[in-house]
């Protein structure tokens, strides 16, 4: 498939911002373009060092994006240092991809957006699709000339939600989407087996939340996103969301909900979607906050 065909195939899916999604063909053709940086973000720490798209750097969600002492993201200084290390300038187009149908890639993209890095794209289908197509992989870790990147403070207002804000959101009867699995939403599953201290004290969901497991947005055979029409059938016809809604999405720690944030914001064009990264590990354990069970 040519570049034009690949691009048009994504455009034909009817997304609001089709430009943010690129195909594996597009990446194969453009991965060496100046001004473009491929970033792999995974859950499994072994995947990148075991083989990645040539030229791709790794951004690790725990080591690179999260503060190690405070439950929060890195600050502007450390983000600038990260950009310098991976050779990114404010003009660099960063193309994310990763495992788990781009869970962590979408999460990294969302964090980059917190710092105002707008030139971002996601490779449709993620790492799995690239591998399934038998495309080139390498274990060679590239080194790029360190860049200069201005220190920008995070903007936590527009696309991120905090606990108290979510509480007000609930009280106002605004829309929430819980993207966890059904057993997590119903409260049947509180935590991972044998690890009662690592989950939440209570099972259930934030009052008023609609249950739309994140994976419903993708085609399970290759991890690509469903068409806009299929997505609207899920989020709008079935769940009653509308692009005029203020929506908060959440999961357990904010990674799966980044994926749904991407779907609603970029693919369906909802202007007011915030990701509650405190998610159930915060809400389910918080004193004084209400929960709901089916």
């Amino acid at each position: 498939m040519s570049q034009v065909q690949a691009s048009s195939e994504i455009k034909e899916r009817g997304y609001k911002n089709a430009e943010i999604l690129v195909s594996t063909d597009w990446v194969a053709e453009h991965r060496n373009d100046p001004g473009l940086r491929l970033v792999e973000s995974n859950e499994d720490m072994l995947l990148y060092p075991s083989g990645h798209i040539p030229g791709a750097v790794q951004v690790d969600w725990t080591g690179d994006l999260n503060d190690q002492l405070c439950r929060d993201y890195i600050d502007g200084e450390r983000f600038a240092a990260l950009m310098k290390r991976i050779g990114v300038t404010p003009d660099t187009t960063v193309v994310f991809y990763g495992d788990k149908s781009n869970w962590w890639a979408a999460y990294a993209l969302w964090v980059f957006r917190l710092f105002g890095h707008e030139k971002v794209k996601l490779m449709d289908g993620g790492r799995l699709k690239w591998e399934m197509e038998g495309r080139e992989m390498t274990r060679e870790v590239p080194a790029y000339q360190p860049t200069e990147y201005p220190v920008r403070q995070r903007d936590d207002q527009k696309i991120r939600a905090f606990r108290d804000e979510v509480h007000q959101h609930v009280k106002a009867g605004k829309k929430l989407v819980d993207v966890r699995s059904t057993p997590e939403f119903t409260g049947e599953r509180l935590h991972m087996e044998d690890y009662p201290n690592e989950g939440a004290l209570r099972g259930g969901h934030i009052p008023g939340a609609r249950s739309v497991p994140w994976a419903r947005a993708i085609n399970p055979d290759n991890g690509t996103f469903k068409t806009a029409e299929e997505l609207k059938a899920i989020y709008e016809q079935e769940q009653g969301l509308s692009s005029s809604d203020e929506v908060v999405v959440y999961c357990r720690i904010g990674e799966r909900s980044s994926h749904t944030w991407f779907v609603l914001t970029e693919l369906l064009g909802y202007p007011n979607v915030r990701n509650y990264d405190g998610s159930w590990t915060e809400w389910g354990n918080s004193v004084g906050l209400p929960i709901e069970k089916p």
């Binding site: 859950e43 499994d44 720490m45 725990t62 080591g63 991972m192 087996e193 044998d194 690890y195 690592e198 357990r252």
Partner: peptide, 21 residues
């Protein structure tokens, strides 16, 4: 069962740890 954390380190995600255990 949690021996996997000694091999894979404390950074092992909850989901991954669940499968390995």
């Amino acid at each position: 069962a949690d021996i996997c954390f000694t091999f894979f380190g404390k950074e092992l995600s909850m989901g991954k740890g669940q499968g390995l255990m």
